[in-house]
Design a protein around this nucleic acid. Structure first.
Lengths: 212, 212
DNA sequence: ACCTGAACACCGTTCAAGT
DNA sequence: ACCTGAACACCGTTCAAGT
């Protein structure tokens, strides 16, 4: 009875178990043989989303030997998935569902997709591309930046009203990638600031500048 | 009849106009004298959230003369507001409401809060602290990173189960600030990568490294 | 095992009627 | 102007009953 899910995907997510049953041609009580409650149907849909994310993260890690390129690919895949499945993404992250109490299966696959990101970060740290801070923290930063951009694009807060074009998407991803890699501070001010913030590599060179 | 809103705040957001009327001691039809539809009540609540954000952004800009410190303060205020009002925040950004068709008043104040961020970025570019890319793009990057972290914290994806402590929050903000300012790439690889990405300042110094 | 149909307690919304 | 009470068309969920 996976047909029901497909129908939901192709239409709306926040609405109507009864309606889904109707257009599946069964009685309004039939879904309860497959899902104990509506929330379980929604968890199943969200689970599909996390599974898609998981496989995209794994794919991104194979497309190149360069962790920086892997990370760029993972970010692009993340946002693309969000743009292609906006309702499902908002189900996954919009707070309609409390993922804390999701079935362990979908929690596991969600966890696994994040682990895919962590693995890319750790490969980058080993290769010397990324600095050697806590890999989990670095991964959370990368996730936050990409996730935030995805959510804001979905909310229409990213200037692109309605649908975003593939070209615009590429432009945004370029900006995200540069920001995540290099930050927004001018090079002249880096050493100053790195000392003040306690750079994880203990960088000590460079003279004072007028950067406050 | 702002009392209704306060009751909603102190409990749940995703639920029941009828119930709100009940505990306000009026009939279930009374709210319709004040809000044409439930969605308008929700827009009003979201509007309060954006107004709070707007004033926090303005406040952050006055607490220091240093744009970098202003940005850190703005980010902290953003996440703190999200953690203190999780339901309202998910109303504002969770996709329940389509902000594209919000009343112009709440759209304006939302726009104004973003403008507050843009002003901080532009001050930082003038002072030489931030690189001279498109200020709107830089602002969107800062917003995305902080917004993404806030949403993931709310969703419980940020290791901190349930409520996050003020100390943990400070730790997260520190990581966010360092990432946004400096990026995650090792210093040895910066010039290489900056050339590959086309740094907005046209940085040309530095020799090749093994940073594929 | 899987589905049905009626029923229950809720919604959001409308509307004639009251003051 | 503001509120009420009844009514309408929907929900999610339960349950006895069918096959």
């Amino acid at each position: 009875v996976a047909a029901e899910e497909m129908l939901e995907e192709s239409g709306f997510e926040a609405l109507s178990l009864r309606d889904a049953a109707r257009r599946a041609g069964v009685s309004h009580a039939a879904p309860y043989r497959h899902f104990p409650a509506k929330v379980d149907l929604l968890f199943a849909l969200a689970g599909r989303g996390f599974a898609a994310l998981d496989s995209e993260m794994a794919r991104a890690a194979t497309l190149s030997a360069d962790p920086i390129a892997q990370l760029a690919e993972a970010g692009l895949a993340y946002v693309r998935l969000a743009v292609w499945h906006p309702r499902r993404t908002q189900l996954m992250f919009g707070g309609i569902l409390d993922m804390q109490e999701a079935p362990s299966g979908v929690r596991d696959v969600a966890q696994s997709s994040f682990q895919g990101l962590v693995r890319i970060i750790e490969a980058g740290q080993r290769s010397g591309a990324f600095h050697h801070g806590d890999s989990l923290e670095v991964a959370l930063m990368a996730w936050s930046l990409v996730h935030g951009a995805a959510m804001l694009i979905l909310g229409g807060q990213f200037k692109y009203a309605g649908q975003i074009s593939e070209d615009d998407l590429r432009g945004v991803m370029r900006a995200i990638h540069r920001t995540l890699m290099l930050g927004i501070v001018r090079d002249d001010c880096r050493d100053d600031l790195a000392r003040a913030l306690g750079s994880p590599e203990g960088n000590l060179a460079g003279g004072p500048e007028k950067c406050d």
